[in-house]
Design a protein around this nucleic acid. Sequence first.
DNA 1: ATTGGTGCAAATCCTTTGCAATAGC
DNA 2: GCTATTGCAAAGGATTTGCACCAAT
Lengths: 147, 147
Amino acid sequence: MMIEADTSDLAEALRARGRRVTSQRLVVLRELRRLGSHVTAEEVHAAVAESLPGVSAPTIYATLDLLVELGLVRRFATGGTAQLYDARQEPHQHVVCRSCGRVEDVDADLDVTLPEAAAAASGFQDLTAELVLQGLCGDCARRLSPV
Amino acid sequence: MMIEADTSDLAEALRARGRRVTSQRLVVLRELRRLGSHVTAEEVHAAVAESLPGVSAPTIYATLDLLVELGLVRRFATGGTAQLYDARQEPHQHVVCRSCGRVEDVDADLDVTLPEAAAAASGFQDLTAELVLQGLCGDCARRLSPV
DNA sequence: ATTGGTGCAAATCCTTTGCAATAGC
DNA sequence: GCTATTGCAAAGGATTTGCACCAAT
């Protein structure tokens, strides 16, 4: 089933692994790409429900798991309760405001060669790295210590 | 109240800020230091309860928040649901097995200068960085693709 | 026709909240 | 004595589970 041209990579990956191509899966990825970086499962659910009313939370979670497994989506936690999902492919990091919880992308070079090598030396394989910065965003800093 | 010599730094930090020195706070830090890296709030609770039966979960959580705020403890999330706490002071990273969830310390040099500078350029202050690696631990790799 | 995926409902787990009682200052 | 801190009970939110139905192959 063809939902949109730019999820054809997912359709191919699914066929290659003998997994089924469903509209839910295609729409989840499409909406994740449209929503941009660092969205919650609930936000994905709401966005997908516009195209597929009645889509269920367990399906959203299962699909997000699958997309992470396929390497099309990154998942990370920020200290807030909900996990965040990110379909952005370029290497980047995230910064979270410890007061308001807001999350932004950080685009910087980060060399994780040494930590990966150290983890590999402990027997770990197939490594990925997530850097999360915590700080006070400009708005909160201003609000908490006013002039 | 003196619980053990090596939490005197906490007692001093509390007095310096006009916060109260309580046995719960001292024991939480003592147990966290004894337990080592990456333990859950529930594990801390169980350990503290041996010295202070009846200590409550809200107290554990509030105290952990306080210790993080004081900079004596690091908090991080691994993709598992529960947050992890770590009283180890030396800079280090963590690696999580995506199959069994086990967490280990990684001791490597990591330069977060550039991401911190990029976040600061976006208005963020007072930054800390947490690197979490995800991979397959040796045991799980062996179990999943046996010889 | 098979069986992997999905939807529904409910359960579980982690964490926070409201409030009265307690203990540090 | 004053009030931050604690304990209790309960609520809240995110995610997972069990099971019956549906739809992709």
